[in-house]
Design a protein around this nucleic acid. Sequence first.
DNA 1: CGAACCTTTCAAAGTCATTTGAAATCTAGG
DNA 2: CCTAGATTTCAAATGACTTTGAAAGGTTCG
Lengths: 182, 182
Amino acid sequence: MPDESKRVLWESEVIVTDLIGRLIEFWGFKRNMGRTWAVLYLSPEPMGARELQDALQLSSGAVSMTLNELLRWGVIKKVWEPGQRRDHFTAEVQLWKMVSRVIAEREQKEVAAAIESCEAALRSLAGKLASSDAAERKRAELQRQRISALLGLARLGGQLLQALVSTAKVDAEALSRIELSR
Amino acid sequence: MPDESKRVLWESEVIVTDLIGRLIEFWGFKRNMGRTWAVLYLSPEPMGARELQDALQLSSGAVSMTLNELLRWGVIKKVWEPGQRRDHFTAEVQLWKMVSRVIAEREQKEVAAAIESCEAALRSLAGKLASSDAAERKRAELQRQRISALLGLARLGGQLLQALVSTAKVDAEALSRIELSR
DNA sequence: CGAACCTTTCAAAGTCATTTGAAATCTAGG
DNA sequence: CCTAGATTTCAAATGACTTTGAAAGGTTCG
């Protein structure tokens, strides 16, 4: 077996790994999570931690942490290659499934927190609405309206996400058909 | 005139400014942009830089920079208060209008970049598809499919954003009606 | 014009998340 | 059970981004 471990990424792979890295970073994850996923996504066979380390020029520790995080998000899978020595990894290729799960899990949490904060703020405002100080009462009234609008927006956002995740299941077909035809 | 400048934020204001601060940070802006916007959003009158500095406990420089950035994003406006000495600021209260503009301007840019990167990667792959090395050709073929799927996803994302921004104009009415009734 | 006051700019300091690499831990084969 | 190779952990280093605060630049009013 020749020196398989030192394979250099193609230009197409560099472009895509960087792209995914930037995008993923933009969405609040670590750049290396995106880069790692992308390398696996473009690899015909599952890859081991060592190969990833070479491909991406990362430290052993970084690879380990990154892989665990990706596993936790369910966007890569462990694979028991027949004879191989250690765990190898493949990317989840059903893109929409992946994206919608991540959105569902993470963004919905944000939305819930936002709704709760708005409700807490409205509760805290209740006393001020009956204040004897007219100016204070007026200010409180304005805030009640504005915070209610925020609350409405948060709820609407939640519904949109819900819709997006449902839609994903439908629209995914077009994409997954591409994926299935190896 | 009593000491108007030292007004302390109500609990409801603290809750909301922190909420918006966190959300905005999550979306890739600075926390103080969110906090500043929120204070203005909850204020009956326009506020000057000094008042904001007191309310948010920031340095003069930070307030100046933050206000300029918010102006650049069009989410606050300068106001010429009748007799007042200096520029004062109000928040843009039409929430959906604001959100959709930001999405349109920023996210669409990301989508465009993603599409372009995918296309570049596919071009760079073209040569490899005709390689004399069978293994290389096979790898190239897989990558062509996978990158095409990414490209499709990027296009779909762009359409979704487009739809979201258009929808905003419709759904905004429900919310703006709340806003208009001072 | 000059004084008082406000705003903007920017280099330096501070803060915080990520990455490193060595040590500890694990696993499988001998 | 021991050794070798691979993986995981974690404290410390790094580096990116933010905030500060002093100095410079503007404005208004006497």
